[in-house]
Design a protein around this nucleic acid. Structure first.
Lengths: 214, 214
DNA sequence: GCACAAATGGAGGTTATGTCCGCATGGGAC
DNA sequence: GTCCCATGCGGACATAACCTCCATTTGTGC
């Protein structure tokens, strides 16, 4: 970023100015209306033509990527904090999932494009998603090594479960209670029952019987 | 339904004919394109003007309700079959959740309107959703009475978790594996660990600590 | 057949998306 | 300072979808 035009001219100053202004406006707008709000409205609120908006961010997703970048740094900091705290692996995983949850709750309607991105591989958001899955996998693996998480659970599933939880509760629109209960439900899903007997720690139960793929 | 005009005239025959034709076309169309496909296309494929389509089904949701009605009967039959089978409560709940899963997978994109409906209370789909939640609650309660499901789990959450699972896996578009793993994750969430010790059966663990509502 | 209520169909208002191109504006040479 | 021109701007426009309204057609009862 900020690499100047190596050929002849410096990039015009108004360009960068407009870019950041768009980002400010979009941040506010998405915060109010959710990520599905009309792009037009952002351009209008920024006092720019639609052409300019699309020149800077050719798709809604591109705009989202730029907006999430700032928050991504914050999330990364939180990840480090969790790791340096050196708490037990389950607490760490829980903390990370909560951080992830908050990240996905940043804007209303965010889960949908993230889900899309984690499937399609063609979206600019894909890399972000894969990073998030990777970090989730990092914490999950630690918990599994300690025998505190079922070994058959995957990082991708946990990530998707966070998306699903946020999606289903409508990003804070709807009842908090269901959201929390769902989170608890999922936690009970991955967490291993009890280290309070001295039986073999991890998989006291085998992988649950999955129905054949019909 | 099919109550004739009590005032003066019988309802015109072409009306009912068009209605059923629209339903046939819509069933196929939604099956192919998902429930978000353009309404126009349905009208066109049925050889009708958009006005006629909207006269019969004023909203996309109204059309969905009519389409789901047939499948709802099927689901109801399945419910009865499960109950008459008289299997154990956990198996019954599992079977019901699977039936529900298939119901929600009927059309691509179905989870979204159902979620909407189960929140808004203004949608024509709302009643359907509430019926589904009620039945889920029926099977869940039985399992809880047997101490085979965590007592703090609610019917609504289970229903929403089915919606969420289907949503996140993109209604059979995406990887089956993640979908099944998620289902397993959730099942581990609600199912009570083990009747293989003769300890008090149900809540071996208290309701998990929910974080205070921030 | 005839009259008329009922139903049709498509034209059209509205809102959103994304592109294209004439125009203005900022950067650099002098 | 001023002039040139590449760079970026802005909004008009092409496209697509939604949904409504009303002139026209069509089926029903007599």
């Amino acid at each position: 970023m900020s690499d100047r035009q190596n050929s002849t001219r410096k990039t015009r100053s108004d360009k960068e100015r407009n870019r950041t202004h768009i980002l400010e406006v979009a941040e506010q707008f998405f915060g109010e209306q959710g990520v599905d709000g009309p792009m037009q409205a952002i351009a209008k609120r920024a006092g720019l033509g639609p052409g300019t908006l699309y020149r800077h961010f050719p798709t809604r997703e591109a705009l989202l990527v730029a907006l999430l970048e700032a928050r991504w740094n914050e999330l990364e900091a939180r990840r480090q904090a969790i790791e340096e705290r050196g708490s037990d692996s389950v607490a760490a995983l829980k903390a990370w999932l909560e951080a992830l949850h908050e990240f996905v709750t940043a804007f209303d309607g965010l889960p949908a494009p993230l889900r899309e991105a984690s499937m399609d591989n063609t979206s600019p958001l894909t890399i972000t998603c894969e990073d998030l899955v990777a970090t989730t996998g990092h914490f999950l693996a630690a918990a599994q090594r300690d025998g505190r998480a079922h070994p058959w659970v995957g990082a991708r599933e946990l990530f998707l479960s966070v998306l699903a939880t946020v999606w289903v509760t409508g990003a804070a629109l709807a009842d908090q209670a269901s959201g929390q209960a769902l989170q608890a439900l999922l936690r009970f899903g991955w967490e291993t029952p009890l280290p309070d007997t001295d039986a073999p720690p991890a998989d006291r139960r085998p992988r649950p019987d999955l129905d054949p793929p019909t």
